[in-house]
C-alpha cells in the first residue's frame, strides 16, 4: 500500500492491503531495461487501488498488469508500445503523466503562464512605485512601530 496511505486518516479501499508489494523477482537483460520497467510501472496508475501506481499496488490486477508490462519490455518492444497496450484497454486514466493534448494544454502550460503573469505583475508594480514619491511608512506607522519596540533599540 505504500504510495498513498498517508496522513492521519485513512481507510483502505477494496482489497488493498497495506503491505510492501511488487516483490516479484524479475530478471532483465541489463540495468537500462530494468530502469525502463521500473519507471514505467511507477508512472502507470492502478485501477483497483486508484491512488497507487502499478509498482506499489498489491492488487491482483496490478500484479497481472506488471507482468504484462514486464513481458512487453522483455520482448524488446518500446516503452510507448507498453503504454499503448494499457491505454487501449483502460484509457488515459492509467497514465499518471497526462498526455499533452488540447484538453490538457491548460494543465501543462498553466503553471508557466501563471509564472509569466507573476513576473509581469512584479514589473508593473515596480514602475508604479518608482513613480510615487511619498514616504513608504507614514509618520504615524513609524511611530507605532517605534513604540512597539519600546526603548530596546538604541
Amino acid at each position: 500500500m505504500k504510495r498513498s496511505v498517508r496522513a492521519c486518516l485513512l481507510v483502505l479501499c477494496c482489497g488493498c492491503v497495506p503491505v510492501a508489494s511488487a516483490t516479484e523477482i524479475r530478471t532483465f537483460k541489463d540495468t537500462t531495461e530494468q530502469l525502463r520497467y521500473e519507471q514505467l510501472v511507477e508512472e502507470l496508475r492502478c485501477l483497483v487501488c486508484q491512488n497507487q501506481s502499478l509498482a506499489d499496488s498489491d492488487a491482483d490486477l496490478a500484479r497481472d498488469l506488471r507482468d504484462e508490462v514486464y513481458q512487453i519490455i522483455r520482448s524488446g518492444k518500446s516503452d510507448e508500445e507498453a503504454v499503448q497496450f494499457l491505454v487501449e484497454r483502460y484509457g488515459d486514466f492509467v497514465l499518471y503523466r497526462p498526455p499533452v493534448k488540447p484538453m490538457t494544454w491548460l494543465l501543462w502550460l498553466g503553471p508557466f503562464l501563471a509564472l509569466a503573469g507573476g513576473l509581469l505583475f512584479i514589473r508593473s508594480r515596480t514602475r508604479q512605485h518608482a513613480a510615487t514619491r511619498s514616504p513608504e511608512l507614514n509618520a504615524a506607522e513609524r511611530e507605532r512601530l517605534r513604540q512597539l519596540e519600546g526603548d530596546t533599540r538604541k
Binding site: C14, L47, V48, D60, L61, D64, R89
Partner: peptide, 13 residues
Amino acid sequence: ADGRIGIDWGVYG
C-alpha cells in the same frame, strides 16, 4: 483462468 481476456477487455473491477 489467468485473466488475460479480462485485461484485453479492460476489466478492472
